[in-house]
Design a protein around this nucleic acid. Sequence first.
DNA 1: CTGCTCGTACGATATTCCTCGTAGTACGGT
DNA 2: ACCGTACTACGAGGAATATCGTACGAGCAG
Lengths: 116, 116
Amino acid sequence: MTTAPTARTLPHPEREALRLEAVLHALADPVRLRVVRELAVSEEKLPCSSFDLPVTKSTTTHHFRVLRESGVIRQTYRGTAKVSELRRTDLEAVFPGLLDSVLHSAARQERRLGSG
Amino acid sequence: MTTAPTARTLPHPEREALRLEAVLHALADPVRLRVVRELAVSEEKLPCSSFDLPVTKSTTTHHFRVLRESGVIRQTYRGTAKVSELRRTDLEAVFPGLLDSVLHSAARQERRLGSG
DNA sequence: CTGCTCGTACGATATTCCTCGTAGTACGGT
DNA sequence: ACCGTACTACGAGGAATATCGTACGAGCAG
């Protein structure tokens, strides 16, 4: 009864508070990089459950939290689901070209190593 | 007597074996990012001792090893010193634009946060 | 040969991180 | 009210990492 129901909010770092080391660390994990790549090709916000990851739900929650706290993604509630989207504009403003080069490098590497 | 003295070599990953996750992880550490930035502005190969890092020599050795094994730098012996240089060409060939955007983002962040 | 400098190797420690299982909350449908 | 789905919180285990100190090796200057 403090404020309103369905008003659950999640802490996100401000654009100006984004740290390069945290973003690089977030992107350095294979599972998280995979999530980011899927979000990049999707024009819609995706719920966590739409990802087919080789880890349990607990671990999935952990990885999404790392991505959110580092500022790579933004998460909002939609009913019982929590949908995620890339913070493209914020990232581009603070670290111009970084996300695109990572995404491009990841795609290149997948082609090179054979969809591993 | 196997080959020659002063022929100590160090293992470096081939260009085609570079892994994006390993490179991102290597760059995600503040100390290592600092080393990479210094190497980037220097046109000469720098010995480990030319860096003024807030860690001991043992730890410095560790960080340089991580950078070398991830393929970010190349290390060669010169007398008693071991000099390092960025593998710019290799990185650009495999992960185009990545190093530059990281370096640019790091410089930007330093300006933004006040030379932290 | 004797130091001196540069860097390494090894062991130890503390911390972080990835992973999981279980239990629990929030929301929507019946 | 009841159940199912989506996600979380907590605790725990195990691996990786960052850090250090000490002891050591390789080369250079006397």
